[in-house]
Design a protein around this nucleic acid. Structure first.
Length: 818
RNA sequence: GCCCGGGUGGCGGAAUCGGCAGACGCGUCGGACUCAAAAUCCGAUGGGCUUCGGCCCUUGAGGGUUCGAGUCCCUCCCCGGGCACCA
């Protein structure tokens, strides 16, 4: 065995060994203690593995190896998220066809991932672009479609003029495309939707019990955006058959509703607009519809509210007064009913609008302590009540004086009684638009027949194979590149055999990733998407680790797909990930890494120079895993030196038998095992590494040679971080085979993990004056006697009497004197 | 605007059931080894004052609770993230 640690030699030796012996393959059918350790699979870019990938995977791999050393049968698979706009755009840029580009990217990724020493089961790789995979993606679409969970409808959609495709709401960031940052515009197109809104409440409720990072749950809650309130029907004057329905979170302010506003898309506009106003209203609506979402938003941000009076009147059901109905673009058709009751006294937007058009304002909620002094004749001003705790109603007839929180309930009940409304809940989340007018995705498996309408492709005809199309560049037409491939879309109707046209949209790549983890245990099964017994054994996922940028996209969609498939009897669970932990982001020298800054860390370079183990461990040492860290090249030397010392202690040590040489060392060993065990369970890798360094420093203090009992447990503790080196040292210690099958995670004795003697801080009047050493568990008297014997303590007591003593066992004594 | 997370030495970061702030590492300085350098090893390393015994200050700012506050409460500032005309 080499005197000095040579990572290159050690790592290639063990990587070959793992591959030859199939060490990382799990017994998928026979495993007795299954643990499914999942990480978010990467998009295989042409640039190769990003250091962010390595960071994410390393943290997850450490968790998997730790679980394995604890005796679990760990399944740790990997795959490639290779469909989608990202890949397609890159292919366009390069002028390479994605069908050529992607396989070579995957090959390169595979090489890099293997070089990092991750514990992947390479026999169960998922590549979503393979027909044997997307056959089942299409099957999921059909399954949901047949269950009425998918539908095609014309809808205003976010359109990226640069990517020339529809984007889901989740893919629009600040009004821009998340991929290319082009401003998103609005289009009306026929689109396929999954009705995720039907699951909004369940997606919200289950967050109560799944074990996820709190911040991720919060993001999902905000995205689902539940609002409680009431639907209220307003009669329209002159249209006894028509009711205008609105949603409000503040039914208690009903008496303050002094006008109504419809979204420009609202279906009633044409009907109710008065003859005099028609021309103006038409023009306003036309302009509003022509403006895209971004322009509308901008106008709103600048505080300009525009609108137009329809001339029609509605009846406020509470006051029975006629109020005018307006059209304005600050009301959104997608939310609620596309119409609002405007309460300008208590809503900032309505207030702005009322001021702009000189509409009446009526205060109906005021702070409780001003109730007695309230003067209904006084000039009405906006009150903008936010919370309903200490506020009461005024100007509201029989509800005057009622606290707002109660009034919400009372007025809702009154509306229900009168048949004019009822309690209602609204969600901000929209249905999931899965259509993409692009090339690089799984074709949506339906056929449009003039006779039969929409006909699902029969299951036995799956997969609908994505054809090789030379010209895969999208255009302005609003239909995908497949719409130019006659041989693809010209088909016979499966029902009537008449001429029909295949759907030419492909599905969103988030549908691929919504279920990839269900496929891993069943990659060798071809007659089902997922093998029932294996699915039962391995799923739901025991631990999922990934980036929080996917909190509202991938993580929401995959929860939805699991629930839907569960409800349709295909899955025995409804939540796919029992435990999810986000990892942090890594920056370099305090700055975000980006190609344009030219500060991207290229893993290959560091791995070559320092070895995978050192690189892995350094990444984990940068900071708390769940928060990320700052990559500074200089710091890697610290880990490198640490590993050299570990190597030296084991490879060049005398390694005598017997217990640790001193009680202090025994204590430190047990304390270290305890600390590392607990830190690994909580993904606190940075402090686990620090603890191991501290321990090794103590083992080697004064240049002494280590005993076997001192270093063997350390080698096992290090194995999740530095698997190659651990293997080599394990072998050197005389063991046969792999440390990951031969070793047990070290156990600690809680009694031994604490010292017999402790340092106790001594305070006089709350200021630290001395430290004394005392046996663990020493009594207050004992400690006080020792403390009083200290010269520094006596000096600061200055001959005064002790009035009070505060004693914290084993930590501190505080003598209060006067 | 709303909802989160954060602000600690030259740097990355430790320490929050309130109990000796700065673990571990980087860097820097000094020493050993060397002809020399690298590597390695040993020591020092928050700031100020010092009669060399110590003393005082210090966790974004200010206030409060407490014997005791990085940690709890209030007000504010700054940085990062999410949502945003959602009724």
């Amino acid at each position: 065995m080499a005197e000095r640690y040579d990572p290159g030699a050690v790592e290639s030796k063990w990587q070959k060994h793992w591959e030859d012996t199939g060490l990382n393959r799990v017994d998928i059918d026979g495993a007795e203690n299954p643990f499914y350790n999942l990480m978010m699979y990467p998009y295989p870019s042409a640039e190769g593995l990003h250091v962010g990938n390595v960071y994410a995977f390393t943290g997850a791999d450490i968790h998997g190896r730790y679980k394995r050393l604890q005796g679990l049968d760990v399944f740790e698979p990997i795959g490639f998220d290779a469909f989608g706009i990202h890949s397609e755009n890159f292919a366009l840029e390069r002028g390479t066809h994605p069908m050529e580009l992607i396989p070579s990217n995957i090959k390169n990724f595979t090489r890099q991932l293997k070089r990092m020493g991750f514990m992947y089961d390479w026999d169960r790789v998922v590549d979503v672009t393979r027909p044997e995979y997307y056959k089942w993606t299409q099957w999921i679409f059909l399954t949901l479609y047949k269950a009425g969970m998918a539908e095609r409808r014309k809808a205003p959609v976010n359109w990226c003029p640069s990517c020339k495709t529809v984007l889901a709401n989740e893919q629009v960031i600040d009004g821009r495309c998340e991929r290319c940052s082009t401003e998103v515009t609005q289009r009306y197109l026929d689109q396929w939707f999954f009705k995720i809104t039907d699951y909004a409440q369940r997606l919200l409720d289950n967050l109560e019990w799944i074990d996820w990072s709190d911040s991720t749950k919060r993001l999902q809650r905000n995205w689902i955006g539940r609002s409680e309130g009431a639907d209220i029907d307003f009669q329209i004057a002159g249209h006894p058959d028509k009711k205008l329905r609105v949603f409000t979170t503040r039914p208690d302010t009903l008496f303050g509703a002094t006008f109504m506003v419809l979204a420009p898309e609202h279906p009633y506009i044409a009907e109710i607009t008065g003859a005099k106003q028609r021309k103006q209203v038409d023009e306003y609506v036309r302009n509003a519809l022509a403006m895209d979402l971004v322009e509308r938003k901008k106008a709103g941000e600048e505080g300009r509210k525009s609108g137009v009076d329809t001339g029609a009147k509605a009846i406020n059901p509470a006051t029975n007064q006629e109020i005018s109905i307006w059209v304005a673009d600050y009301v959104l058709m997608e939310y609620g009913h596309g119409a609002i009751m405007a309460v300008p006294a208590h809503d900032e937007r309505d207030f702005e609008f009322a001021r702009e058009y000189d509409l009446p304002i009526r205060v109906v909620v005021i702070p409780a302590d001003q109730y007695d002094a309230f003067d209904p004749q006084a000039e009405l001003q906006a009150a903008f009540t936010e919370h309903t705790e200490d506020e009461v109603l005024v100007n509201s007839e029989k509800f005057d004086g009622v606290p707002a929180a109660q009034a919400i309930k009372q007025i809702t009940a009154w509306l229900e009684q009168e048949g004019r409304g009822q309690g209602a809940v609204n969600y901000r989340i929209h249905d999931w638009c899965i259509s993409r007018q692009r090339y690089w995705g799984p074709p949506i498996p339906v056929i449009h027949c003039e006779q039969c309408g929409i006909v699902p492709v029969p299951e036995e005809d799956l997969p609908v194979v994505l054809p090789y199309v030379e010209q895969f560049r999208p255009d302005e037409s609003g239909v995908g590149p497949l719409a130019r491939a006659k041989e693809f879309y010209e088909v016979d109707c499966p029902q009537c055999a008449g001429p029909a046209k295949r759907e030419t949209d492909v599905s969103d790549t988030f549908l691929d990733s919504a279920w990839y983890f269900m496929r891993y245990p069943s990659t060798d099964v071809h007659d089902k998407p997922f093998h029932p017994a294996r699915t039962k054994k391995w799923l739901p996922v025991d631990m999922y680790i990934g980036g929080e940028e996917h909190a509202v996209l991938h993580l929401m969609y995959s929860r939805y797909i699991s629930m839907a498939l569960h409800d349709l009897g295909h899955l025995p669970f409804e939540e796919p990930y029992e435990k999810f932990r986000k990892h942090g982001l890594i920056v370099r020298e305090g700055a975000k890494m980006s190609k344009s800054r030219g500060n991207v860390v290229i893993p290959d370079e560091f791995v070559e120079q320092y070895g995978a183990d050192t690189f892995r461990t350094y990444l984990m040492f940068l900071g708390p895993y769940e928060e990320g860290g700052d990559f500074r090249e200089q710091g890697i030397a610290g880990i490198s030196r640490f590993f050299d010392r570990v190597w030296d202690a084991v490879a060049n040590g005398a390694l005598e038998a017997g217990p640790p040489e001193t009680n202090e060392l025994t204590q430190k060993l047990h304390a270290t095992i305890k600390k590392v065990t607990e830190d690994l369970a909580g993904l606190q890798y940075n402090t686990a590494i620090a603890a191991m360094m501290e321990y090794l420093n103590q083992v080697r203090a004064g240049g002494r040679a280590a005993r076997r009992s001192e270093v063997e447990p350390l080698v096992v503790l290090l194995a999740p971080f530095a698997p190659h080196m651990a293997e080599e040292l394990w072998q050197h210690l005389g063991h046969e085979g792999s440390i990951f099958s031969g070793a047990n995670w070290p156990r600690y004795d809680a009694q031994l993990a604490v010292a017999d003697e402790v340092d106790i801080a001594v305070q006089v009047n709350g200021r630290f004056r001395a430290t004394i050493r005392a046996p663990r568990g020493a009594s207050e008297d004992e400690v006080k006697q020792k403390a009083l014997a200290e010269e520094a303590v006596q000096r600061h007591m200055n001959g005064k009497k002790i009035k009070k003593t505060i004693f914290v066992p084993d930590r501190l004594i505080n003598l209060l004197v006067a």
